[in-house]
Amino acid sequence: MQCDYFDAGVCRSCTFMGLPYAAQLADKDASVRSALAAHVDDALWLQPFSGPESGFRNKAKLVVGGRRGAPALGILADRGAVADLTRCGLYEPVLADAVRALPGVVARSGLTPYDVARRSGELKNILMTASPDHELMVRFVLRSPGQLPRLREALQDLRTTLPRATVVTANLLPEHKAVLEGPEEVVLTEADSLTMRVDDVGLHLRPQSFFQTNTTVATGLYRQVTDWVRAVGATSLWDLYCGVGGFALHALRAGAVRAVRGLEVSPAAVDSANRTAREMGAAPGTAVFEAGDATQDLGPARDANASGEPAGTTPGSPEVLVVNPPRRGIGGDLAARIEHWPDLRHVVYSSCNVTSLSRDLAAMPSLRVRAARLFDMFPQSAHHEVAVLLERV
């Protein structure tokens, strides 16, 4: 892949740019194998799963700069200026077209770009997501609600220019700090969620819900986990850090298990997962998603109750557990609970950080890796996703 922004020194986010993709993939695979060598025998590694080396991102995160009527969309550069990145080659085609059309929409809206150095202006960032059905979610991150009327007035122009914009919102970020979004979201369209249809499972993505950046590779990851769950002969599955329910609902849809339960800290994501389960026609009680923190709400292993379950768990116990934590991993407390979980025979761990994954595996010595695979969500960079199948010995 060749990139004019990289060649000009404007953006260096793609640290592997210029290296042939086959070499990138081989180097990344070797790196994660080395990092997990203490836990995974070389023979247990499957071939890495990859997709296209460009045109793969389903998300755009654009800082807004410039001036009113002449905005710049891209990344922060020197002294708070914004360097244009509207022709980045990583975006999916429908997203790439939308990103290139956005500066005109912003210019016509009359919204004033936020000036980081002066701490003035209103429009800070624009966040976009593209679905497999080529629909878009467009989120305008504003400094205050005072510009909502102006944004509402611009909505018709936006939807005329971007007819695939199904969900449009305003996110409010009054503080001056290095984050992309604030806690409050105002939905400006009839639809409040984007349908991410993956292998005929219509996952509902709300504005602040997490979904993998690379839809092609996410599809491969869901299929692999479903295959592992089917192979171990489990009938029930719990999905911790479940987000909008991707792992659990794909396993249920494929008939790999008969019942699933998910735990996720975001109530909005939980609502989305339950909505998808209903639309799939899941029988009552076979797909239940609840709001909670997996690191706290399962209860410590040392406080196991009379039935042998960790204190605080919902009734019953799964035959297979799926965990997909943030970069910090599941941590020592949850690893100890899983290590001492009665009757839990199998765990699937999906990780974006082999350092925390290695640490967590060391804390669960009775669970041995039976298979492992790299999923290259982030070509052109060292970022990675690794999934491992664990079995109690």
Rank of each mutant, 00 (worst) to 15 (best):
H250Q: 15
R108N: 15
A77K: 05
R206A: 14
T129R: 15
F6Y: 15
G104E: 12
A165H: 05
C3K: 14
A37I: 06
D157S: 06
L25H: 00
V270F: 05
P310N: 05
P325S: 01
G246M: 02
S144N: 00
Y222M: 12
Q224V: 11
I330S: 06
P145T: 15
A251V: 00
P284E: 07
L127T: 09
V116F: 04
A268E: 15
A38Y: 04
Q380W: 05
H134F: 04
T219E: 12
G110L: 11
F16L: 14
S50G: 06
V167E: 02
Y5F: 07
A231G: 02
L136Q: 02
F49I: 04
V257S: 11
L249I: 00
T216D: 06
L172R: 03
E92M: 04
R368E: 05
D7F: 09
R278F: 09
A282V: 13
L298I: 13
G80W: 14
S366L: 02
I126K: 01
A291F: 01
V167A: 07
A38D: 12
R152S: 00
M128S: 10
L205R: 02
Q156R: 08
A165S: 10
M364A: 08
E385H: 07
V232P: 02
Q147S: 08
T226Q: 03
E181V: 04
R68K: 15
A363K: 12
L194Y: 03
R206F: 11
S317E: 01
C14Q: 02
R152K: 04
V347K: 05
E339G: 13
H134A: 03
A387N: 08
